[in-house]
């Protein structure tokens, strides 16, 4: 059970979850950008993540690097299969990443980089959603290589997961901004939050119901006794969380909706894991088949054991330093 490949599958799943949690709200702010007023509001919104965005995105690099290191075969199959959405994501991340700096460099160019921040965040998020959908849907494999074409990823399901993630990240972004801002900006976000939450809930529901019908194997996994019994709390907890978010938004409690919304994401993510494990390329390659030799996994585990706790400490410290509401006009620019 706790052999090195399984440990690494768990660690990588954790890394990707942390990425989704941390960069989700961060990308969400970019998606919300057109709804914020030019100038001050956008400045403040960006400054709520400016000190931490780079660290958030590093989890994506660890996800990619970790997959290469721990499951090189899976990495070698998934990346070419998802060539187009992966590269689209990278292009999106380029535009939004540089916007954090470029936006402040020339007042006359602010429009360009507002658009870059929005467009880049939207493209990156939509692509990540497509990657997720196409991945769950399955990838054509022949021997040790991807055997499909360069548009296999395109399907109604992957488009739909792309769309859902856009709304999902925008929702996280809203909760984050409610937590980090005040005044008019926060009030407007409160108005936005309820319709947005309902949309996210609807979309997540559709994706959850759609997923088991993608393959008989996933279907069997969800709708089989006694598994069904173990899994039944998942939708119940989700409904409970949604209720708590609703109540707290109504009461205008700035601090609770964000962690609760993260809880919703964790739950959906767990559901996804149930649909996939023990595969690392769904229904084609298992964790054990793709795993690098123990000599690689063990060597890396030492590094993870040393560095991950340190990373948690100083990342937490950095969030702690920049805690609290961001006032208009703060920043080093």
């Amino acid at each position: 059970m706790f052999d090195l490949p399984t440990i690494w599958a768990g660690l990588l799943a954790l890394v990707i979850l942390i990425y989704v949690i941390l960069d989700g709200f961060d990308l969400g702010i970019g998606i919300l950008y057109p709804l914020l007023q030019k100038g001050e509001e956008r400045n403040t919104a960006m400054n709520t993540v400016a000190p931490v965005w780079d660290g958030n995105e590093t989890w994506l690099v660890l996800g990619g690097g970790g997959l290469l290191a721990a499951f090189p075969l899976a990495y070698a199959i998934i990346m070419p299969a998802l060539y187009v959405p992966i590269l689209a994501m990278l292009f999106g991340l380029i535009f939004r990443g540089v916007s954090f700096e470029f936006r402040w460099r020339n007042p006359r160019h602010e429009k360009i980089w507002d658009a870059g921040f929005f467009g880049g965040s939207l493209l990156a998020t939509f692509s990540q959603g497509i990657v997720l959908g196409a991945f769950v849907q399955g990838i054509a494999v022949d021997g040790r290589a991807y055997s499909g074409g360069w548009f296999d990823w395109l399907s109604p399901f992957s488009m739909f997961t792309g769309l859902s993630l856009v709304f999902g990240y925008a929702f996280l972004g809203t909760m984050w901004l409610i937590l980090k801002t005040e005044g008019e900006l926060r009030d407007r976000l409160y108005k936005l939050s309820l319709p947005l939450m309902l949309t996210v809930f609807l979309l997540t529901g559709i994706v959850s119901l759609w997923t088991p019908f993608l393959s008989p194997e996933i279907f069997a996994r969800w709708f089989k006794m006694p598994t069904l019994l173990y899994l039944s709390p998942v939708p119940i907890i989700a409904a409970l969380l949604a209720w708590r978010i609703y109540v707290n938004l109504k009461r205008q409690n700035d601090y609770r909706p964000f962690p609760l919304a993260l809880g919703l994401f964790v739950l959906s993510y767990a559901g996804l894991g149930i649909s996939i494990f023990p595969y690392v390329v769904p229904r084609a390659i298992t964790v054990a088949e793709a795993a690098a030799p123990d000599a690689s996994l063990g060597f890396m585990l030492i590094g993870a054991a040393i560095f991950l706790p340190l990373i948690f400490i100083y990342t937490g410290y950095s969030y702690w330093i920049f805690r609290g509401k961001v006032k208009a006009g703060e920043g080093y620019h």
Partner: peptide, 23 residues
């Protein structure tokens, strides 16, 4: 991957996070 992957993973763990965390 079994050889270069861990080297790159060490780069991310020991360097990228450090830079990003303190930047």
């Amino acid at each position: 991957g079994p050889i270069l992957g861990p080297l790159l993973a060490y780069e991310v763990l020991s360097a990228f996070f450090l830079e990003a965390g303190f930047l």
